[in-house]
Each structure stands twice: as C-alpha cells, then as structure tokens.
C-alpha cells in the first residue's frame, strides 16, 4: 500500500545542510499498521511530511496505493491519504466550528450528502451531535484530537498518516484515542503509518516497526520481536531498555554524555 525506496530529504544547501532522511526504504502492506520510532531529530516526522506532500524536497521513489507520489500530490491523493498531527491545539483553525472544519474538505472535494457525512463521522469518533457547532477552544485536548481524526476520516481515505497523535495528551485520554484509532482501523480496513517517540504506543498499535537513528532505519522488526526483547541492534536495545523504565544499573552504565 505504501512503498518507499531510498527516500532522502536534505535541508539547506552547502556546508550547513543537514541530511535529515538518508536513504530510507520500507513497505507497508494493505491493512497493516507500520510504526516509525526514534528520538528527536532522527527524521521520522520528516518522512511523514514528505509522504503527505508537505515537503516537496525529497528524492527517491514513493508509491502510495499503487500510484507514484507526485509533487504536488494533487486532489485525488488526499482522497486516499490523510494525516493527523501531533498537537490538536495547533492543527485546528481556532475560528472554525467543528462543522466548518469538517465541511471544508467535503466542499473542496465536491462530495455530496455533506450533512449526513458530518453527522456520521462525529458519531464515529465519539463526539455527539452536541459538539457540531462548537469552536476548538470549547473542546478538551482529547476532544480536539477526535475532531482532527474526524477531519482526516471524512474523506474516507485508505491510508492514515499519524504523527505523534497522542503525545500531547494525558495517559487516560491517550488510552481513549488509541482505542478510537484501533476501532476505526478495524472498521475501515485502514493502512496506517504511525510516527512516535513512545515505543509503548508503537507496540500497542503497530504490526511492524522501524527503529530510526540519524536519518536511517537501523532495524525493522515485528511487534512480537519487540515484545520479546529480541532487538537486533545496540541502538534498538538501548531504546527498548530506556522505554521500559529506570534501571539504576543500566542507567549508570550509560551515564556518559552523548554529543553536544
């Protein structure tokens, strides 16, 4: 469903440039959820932004749903691929009501039966009809993220790109959103690409994952291997151990500073 070959993204030019993504390849099968995990600056979000057309400066070959990714992607692309961003406070228009937010993509894509579609998607993400004419500031963080998911779903995409969809939320709200994402994925047979720094979230939602460092994929593994602690690289292992909680012995061993 998603095929990425030798994807490279470079920011800036000349000596001060940064190779943010350095030859990344992976495939995501239809109906599969694939995770990209890594620490800040490893290039995981940059990949997502390239895949959804927000950053045209990439090289390599990307095909989504069988069609090569064009620059700019074009309207048909966004019917198939939608994105949910990290911060629901920044990704929603503060002066658009829930209704306006959801009607806009329908209008752009000339879809019919708009009223019914808005009502349905609101129910599906667990926001009742009472929320339809509210503004984002009248919603909690979790409700905003539900709205952001509704906005992505309303075009009935086949692929969902998720950039840290729960990292701005409290754990109890995170659980609600993660459940919502699993339900929607099952109901619609969506293919998902999930970017997160939180290995536990990736382990919960994904079938397979890639561990990234310095713009490269250092290893790909399935979630069973992750759960069994069967990582294949030193970096993958240290990331897993650090994610399991504080361990005095391990932490002391790793106390020496990294690069400044």
């Amino acid at each position: 469903m998603i095929a990425v070959q030798e994807l490279r993204v470079r920011f800036g030019q000349g000596a001060g440039s940064v190779q943010a993504v350095d030859g990344v390849s992976f495939d995501v099968a239809e109906g599969e959820t694939f995770g990209l995990v890594g620490e800040s600056g490893c290039g995981k979000s940059t990949i997502l932004r390239a895949l959804c057309g927000l950053n045209p400066a990439w090289t390599g070959a990307v095909a989504i749903a069988g069609a090569p990714l064009a620059r700019p992607p074009g309207r048909a692309f966004f019917r198939r691929v939608q994105m949910v961003f990290q911060d629901p406070y920044a990704s929603l228009h503060p002066r658009h009501t829930v209704n306006t937010t959801l009607m806009e993509p329908l209008a752009i894509h000339g879809m019919d039966d708009r009223d019914r579609r808005v009502a349905e998607v609101l129910l599906q993400v667990g926001l009742g009809p009472a929320f339809r004419y509210r503004y984002p500031h009248q919603l909690s963080g979790g409700q905003r993220q539900r709205l952001a998911i509704a906005r992505a779903l309303i075009l009935e995409p086949r692929v969902l790109l998720l950039d840290e969809p729960t990292s701005a939320l409290d754990v109890s709200v995170q659980a609600e959103i993660l459940n919502l994402l699993s339900d929607i994925r099952a109901a619609r047979g969506l293919t998902c690409l999930l970017v997160s720094h939180d290995l536990a979230v990736i382990a919960h939602l994904c079938d397979r994952l890639a561990v990234m460092q310095h713009g490269r994929i250092v290893e790909q593994l399935d979630v069973g291997m992750l759960a069994g602690g069967r990582t294949n690289t030193a970096y993958g292992t240290s990331l897993l151990q650090a994610s399991l909680g504080y361990d005095r012995r391990l932490a002391r061993a790793g106390i020496e500073e990294g690069p400044i």
């Binding site: 659980a175 602690g229 994610s243």
Partner: peptide, 20 residues
C-alpha cells in the same frame, strides 16, 4: 488502578486499553 490500566505496555498486548 485506572491510570495503570490505561497505559500501553511493551510486551503485553491488549486489543483495547482500559479507559478511566
């Protein structure tokens, strides 16, 4: 208890997380 149950955990896959 609710908070603990709502945490996703590596190596302990559940179809759904408990919601507080």
């Amino acid at each position: 208890r609710g908070l603990l149950a709502s945490l996703p955990r590596i190596g302990e896959r559940r179809a759904r997380l408990e919601v507080l």
